[in-house]
Amino acid sequence: MNRTLSPLVTWRWLLALLTVLPLLASATEPLPSWKDGPSKKAITQFVAAVTEEGSKDYVAPAERIAVFDNDGTLWSEQPMYFQVLFAFDEAKRLAPEHPEWKTTQPFKALLEGDKETLAASGMEGLMKILAATHTGISTEEFSARAEAWLAKAKHPKSGKPFTEMVFQPMLELLDYLRANGFKTYIVSGGEVAFMRTFAEEVYGIPPEQVIGTTFVTELQDQDGKLSILRQPKLLHNDDGPGKPVSIDQVIGRRPILAFGNSDGDLQMLQWTAAGDGKRFMGLVHHTDAQREWAYDRESKVGKLDKALVAAKQGNWTVVDMAKEWQRVYPFEAPQP
């Protein structure tokens, strides 16, 4: 017996289909928060080339190493590097235990909100604050303090937790690469123990694949209780030329893909580009003043000048955040 669907049933079926189809498309489409454009095309073509067996560009899974800067590449870095904001908050929290800071710079300027004097103290002043808040304690104690801060601190502009100020397109890129046999590493100027407190949960990158700036440490034995004590002396500055050095020491393989966003990533990108075979070098260009920030050559945080020139000369991929990302953060709706 022939049966026909009523108009109401037909309408409901069509409505359900229209609802499901976008979900199916997003489930199969790689990098859904990336607009169809030059950067997405370059990424997918590169991954296809190095993962297709029999291809002249094929790379064995063991050699599919991808390295990413953190600040400004995987999460925002304005109005100041998030770890510096942590150090400032820690110094204020610890101030009652250090009455001498009331008369000692740069702590005096920090506690009094004297931004000009604090800025004038430069890198030397910042290192004093970092040493006071990051060392003299065990690795376990430092990690606990960092986790406590990340659990309650809010970004000054968005009001969101700092761990939500991550870039949705880059999270998708990390997943996409791992699904295609890549091993993903963070190689950042940030301090390694600080990044390890959130990298696995936020990025899916385990602690052993997080490389960063390190302080001198030593084994401490207090009545049979062992711990790793953090000393107020810098062991390795993982920025600029320090990045290829740490990649060589820790990973032992040259990456075939590298992503950064500033001149501090230039040597890491150059080191990647200098290898044999097909390579991918990418820069996140902060061009979106509405959803994030717009800055490059004149910025005091995440300055992008020499690396931008090198990218154009080397035909690297420069991601225009405003034009190529449907959304920036996981908590925002994608653009139409």
Score class of each variant (00 low, 15 high):
Glu218Ile: 02
Leu118Asn: 02
Gly240Cys: 14
Ala62Arg: 14
Leu118Glu: 01
Pro32Tyr: 04
Val166His: 10
Pro106Ile: 00
Asp69Leu: 05
Met281Asn: 09
Arg253Met: 15
Thr10Ile: 05
Phe167Glu: 08
Lys108Arg: 04
Asp238Ala: 13
Pro232Ser: 10
Ala151Lys: 07
Phe182Pro: 01
Ser246Arg: 13
Phe215Gly: 03
Thr139Tyr: 00
Glu77Cys: 04
Val328Asp: 01
Lys306Asn: 07
Asp239Val: 15
Ile251Ser: 05
Ala87Lys: 01
Ser227Tyr: 02
Phe86Arg: 08
Tyr81Gln: 08
Ala48Ser: 15
Asp263Arg: 09
Tyr203Phe: 15
Ala193Phe: 13
Leu14Val: 12
Ala119Val: 02
Ala322Lys: 13
Thr317His: 02
Arg64Gly: 15
Leu85Asn: 08
Ala42Cys: 05
Ile247Asp: 00
Val210Phe: 06
His236Asp: 11
Gly240Asp: 12
Ala131Pro: 00
Thr73Lys: 10
Val319Ser: 10
Ala333Gly: 08
Ile129Pro: 01
Pro79Leu: 05
Ile43Phe: 08
Ala148Gln: 12
Leu257Gly: 13
Arg291Asn: 06
Tyr329Ile: 05
Glu90Tyr: 12
Thr163Ser: 05
Ala258Pro: 13
Glu147Pro: 01
Gly252Glu: 03
Ile43Trp: 02
Glu100Thr: 04
His286Gln: 13
Phe107Asn: 01
Asp248Tyr: 02
Glu200Thr: 11
Lys278Asp: 00
Ala273Arg: 04
Ser227Glu: 06
Ile65Trp: 05
Met268His: 01
Phe167Asn: 09
Phe82Cys: 03
Arg178Ser: 01
